[in-house]
């Protein structure tokens, strides 16, 4: 099986986000960049499928030169090689999906796995858009995946609100990974060394000649409303409990 995994580099989830004064992005100084957490589940699942069925795992990434770090980490987890679509500007979901779909087509594949969403712009669009663009079926937010090579079919469990559902589909297909799918491995030292020598192909975004007009434009970023000063009670548990219920009832009027 040839499996392609898309990997995005995002700010660590512990990052305090600071918006630029012009609202056109965030300050990147001091940010610790990591692999999008959901993409780690995607890489792990691809590696497990390869370990069981044989084949190749190729990582696809898109972004400025710093993304090489996330790509090398993916290779250190065990992916075989990588393709990076290079671009300095920020890229909206449709453009990212179209660029990655173009690389998928160049590469050929049996399966494409992405994270269920990237934790920076939280759009959850790229996986399904690649699928639709390439005319492939999709299953998203997957917490369990079975591959049947004989029938070339997948059976996946996907998470819903308060429920889950089983989806069956033929592959080639696109699967998006949710927390719970697996427990991603840590790279071992020998694999970190090996990863340095693995092949990384670079393709510029411009060379893919995608339409220039973005589908979605971010006019500006701004701070969420600040929360009001808190009322903090301390002392006797019975008294504070009573006072809290009184405040919620009379002041906030929510009980």
């Amino acid at each position: 099986m040839k499996i392609l995994v898309t990997v995005k580099q995002v700010p660590d989830t512990a990052t305090k986000i600071q918006i630029r004064a012009d609202g056109q992005g965030i300050h990147e100084e001091g940010i610790k960049w990591v692999i999008n957490p959901y993409d780690e589940f995607a890489i792990e699942e691809a590696l497990r499928i390869k370990e069981k069925h044989g084949g190749e795992v190729v990582v696809l990434a898109l972004g400025p030169s710093r993304v090489e770090e996330a790509v090398r980490q993916s290779l250190a987890m065990g992916a075989d090689r990588a393709v990076i679509v290079t671009t300095e500007g920020s890229v909206e979901p449709a453009t990212a999906a179209h660029a990655l779909a173009a690389i998928c087509q160049q590469e050929g594949f049996d399966l494409i796995i992405t994270g269920k969403q990237a934790v920076d712009d939280d759009s959850a669009q790229v996986g399904p858009m690649i699928a639709a663009g390439l005319g492939l079926p999709q299953v998203t937010v997957v917490i369990h995946l079975e591959v049947d090579e004989a029938s070339k079919r997948l059976r996946a469990e996907r998470e819903l609100e308060g429920a889950s559902e089983i989806v069956e589909l033929p592959y080639p297909a696109v699967v998006t990974a949710q927390r719970g799918l697996n427990e991603p491995r840590y790279p071992t030292l020998p694999n970190i060394m090996k990863a340095k020598k693995k092949e990384v192909r670079r393709v510029t975004l411009e060379s893919l000649s995608l339409p220039a007009q973005p589908w979605v434009t971010v006019n500006r970023l701004f701070e969420p409303p600040t929360r009001p000063e808190p009322t903090i009670l301390s002392g006797d548990p019975a008294e504070t409990a009573k006072e809290l219920v009184r405040l919620l009832h009379n002041q906030a009027k929510v009980l």
Partner: peptide
């Protein structure tokens, strides 16, 4: 913007060639 809607809307966005803002 639930699991059902995110799954279908993102796919439909590409099929229709229509931009989508999530959530």
């Amino acid at each position: 913007a639930n699991a059902w809607g995110k799954d279908l809307s993102a796919r439909l966005s590409e099929v229709l060639g229509a931009g989508l803002a999530t959530d």
